[in-house]
């Protein structure tokens, strides 16, 4: 009986981990208040705490609105009201040494804290704001973009 339940458990683990690879979750909404939406292609999705994010998502906050995002490499983006963050590219595959984080802070206020990609492969990170790019060496930034 115990062996059977362990076998089931293991199957479940393998299934659940392969599923998490299939739907390309790159992170999630970790904290939020007020109006937060996710624009995925032509769809506008409501955000909740725990809502998964995918490569290509645009996260938008209204006023009042604020959100804290944690990506799977443990990096975080926090955004204030009337802000937009585009998560353009993302790869975090330490075993094969594949890393990429391309994000654009389109407008609003942000705090960015680098995660494992920042430690293992800082050159794979490309942050941008309108008119400028930011290269980082393991760090935290505050960014304001007025439109």
């Amino acid at each position: 009986m115990k062996i059977l339940s362990l076998a089931l458990l293991f199957t479940y683990i393998i299934l659940s981990s392969s599923c998490s690879l299939a739907n390309d979750k790159i992170g999630q909404i970790h904290t939020m208040k007020g109006d937060v939406t996710i624009i995925r292609g032509t769809t506008v999705l409501p955000a909740n705490i725990g809502t998964p994010l995918q490569k290509g998502d645009l996260v938008r906050t209204g006023k009042p609105g604020a959100a804290g995002i944690v990506l799977t490499d443990d990096s975080t983006f926090s955004m204030g009201s009337n802000s937009e963050l585009a998560l353009k590219e993302y790869a975090f595959n330490p075993k094969e040494g594949k890393f990429s984080l391309v994000a654009r802070m389109v407008k609003g206020t942000f705090a960015y804290l680098s995660g494992l990609i920042g430690k293992l492969s800082p050159d794979s990170i490309q942050l941008s704001i309108p008119d400028a790019t930011i290269a980082i060496r393991g760090t935290k930034l505050l960014v304001e973009v007025q439109k």
């Binding site: 804290l113 680098s114 920042g118 704001i129 309108p130 008119d131 400028a132 930011i134 290269a135 980082i136 060496r137 393991g138 760090t139 935290k140 930034l141 505050l142 960014v143 304001e144 973009v145 007025q146």
Partner: peptide
């Protein structure tokens, strides 16, 4: 547009 470098939670400051 403004960029500010601040210390990490562990007190270390990187570069940008």
């Amino acid at each position: 547009r403004t960029v500010v470098l601040v210390p990490d939670p562990d007190g270390h400051t990187g570069k940008a």
